[in-house]
């Protein structure tokens, strides 16, 4: 038996639909678990969850702790916080590691859990690993020492072209959130079996301080950025909000496509934040990413550089995007985008 406790993954589900991040976290957790010789436990919260616990087993969980109660039908911070904390506290000892998605759910929930346990939490990781760490702090002698098999929570460091490895071996669970699209998902195996444990959580009146009045799902036909196979993004080079008409028009030639944007276009008020790709937006990994009028600052790059094929259109031959795009055209996007649309149709349409 391993000297370490198990790894916990908090499943990310909306309306009984497991989000892609869940499978990615399970994939990463299994890799970490193999190094520690421990198991992966998933926690899933919701109502009328049906086959979801089984899906979690098929996708990498060794056991699943299910809280299936009407109070959890819609996500709220305080009810999910209560449920997650209750499950973790039902374990004999704190898990070695606990992982959440860096989604609007995980980024809302994970800090509350970490704060409750007074433990460390690293945000928006793009890689996770296990390794040793020697702490030589002079200012904090109580922490000095060598720690084995710590969580390496790896994230791009702010607006800079650096990656940082964050460690917190002093307290368990060592927690991290991970960006969607960054980790390799578990390969589904429907022959896997595992234990499913139902947990009943007792809520307190104060857990219902926030009421959900209404949940409005995206009404546009635009596919969720994260699930899109083709993303056409526009940046500051569009020159104004109307530029996104050209972006959408090019996107319309592709199946399973969505419209993205750079942060500058969002900050200029040209398109809602939900379309933002990059460090402070979404991390995406589509088959094809077309960047129109995006310079390719590091903040954008870290959100899309893992795309299968990147095509960049920019007036400025020196734009950083041409450093990492696979194909580039130097020119006016308003000329080029319609031509790309026609040419893709002509050359590739089935």
């Amino acid at each position: 038996m391993s000297q370490y406790e198990d790894i916990v993954v908090i499943a990310d589900q909306i309306q009984n639909d497991l989000r892609p991040i869940t499978f990615e976290l399970l994939g990463a957790a299994q890799t970490l678990a193999a190094k520690l010789d421990v198991k992966v436990r998933a926690i899933v919260m919701g109502h009328n969850l049906g086959s979801i616990p089984q899906d979690l087993i098929h996708n990498g969980a060794d056991s699943v702790y299910v809280v299936d109660q009407p109070e959890l039908a819609e996500y709220t911070t305080l009810t999910y916080r209560r449920a997650a904390i209750s499950v973790i506290e039902s374990f004999e000892r704190p898990p070695h590691i606990a992982l959440c998605g860096a989604t609007t759910l995980g980024r809302d929930l994970a800090p509350r859990i970490a704060s409750h346990f007074e433990t460390g939490l690293t945000a928006d990781c793009t890689e996770l690993d296990i390794g040793d760490y020697e702490h030589k702090g002079k200012a904090d002698p109580s922490k000095t020492g060598t720690y084995n098999n710590c969580l390496y929570a790896i994230r791009p460091s702010f607006g800079e072209s650096l990656k940082a490895r964050i460690l917190g071996p002093w307290k368990n669970p060592q927690m991290a959130t991970a960006r969607t699209g960054a980790l390799i998902p578990f390969v589904t195996d429907t022959t896997r079996t595992g234990r499913i444990v139902a947990i009943k959580v007792k809520f307190e009146e104060s857990d219902f301080r926030v009421k959900v009045i209404e949940t409005v799902r995206a009404v546009s036909d635009a596919l969720d950025l994260i699930r899109a196979k083709v993303i056409v993004s526009g940046g500051f080079g569009l020159g104004g909000p109307e530029g996104f008409d050209v972006v959408s028009d090019l996107a319309s030639v592709f199946k399973e496509s969505a419209v993205g944007s750079s942060r500058k276009a969002v900050d200029s008020g040209w398109i809602p934040y939900s379309h933002q790709v990059g460090q402070t937006g979404k991390t995406v990994r589509p088959v094809l990413y077309i960047a129109l009028g995006i310079s390719g600052a590091i903040q954008h790059r870290v959100g899309m550089s893992n795309s299968g094929t990147i095509i960049a259109v920019n007036k400025d031959e020196k734009a950083p995007i041409f450093q990492f795009a696979h194909y580039g055209i130097v020119g006016d996007l308003y000329d080029i985008a319609p031509m790309l649309k026609e040419q893709f149709k002509k050359s590739m349409a089935s």
Binding site: E118, T122, E317, Q323, Y327, V330
Partner: peptide, 24 residues
Amino acid sequence: LGSPTVVGKTWKLGEKGGSCKLFK
């Protein structure tokens, strides 16, 4: 003293420059 996490190591993101096929 009060921080459960520390930055262990930082390194530069790998440059992939030069592989772009540029049409100009």
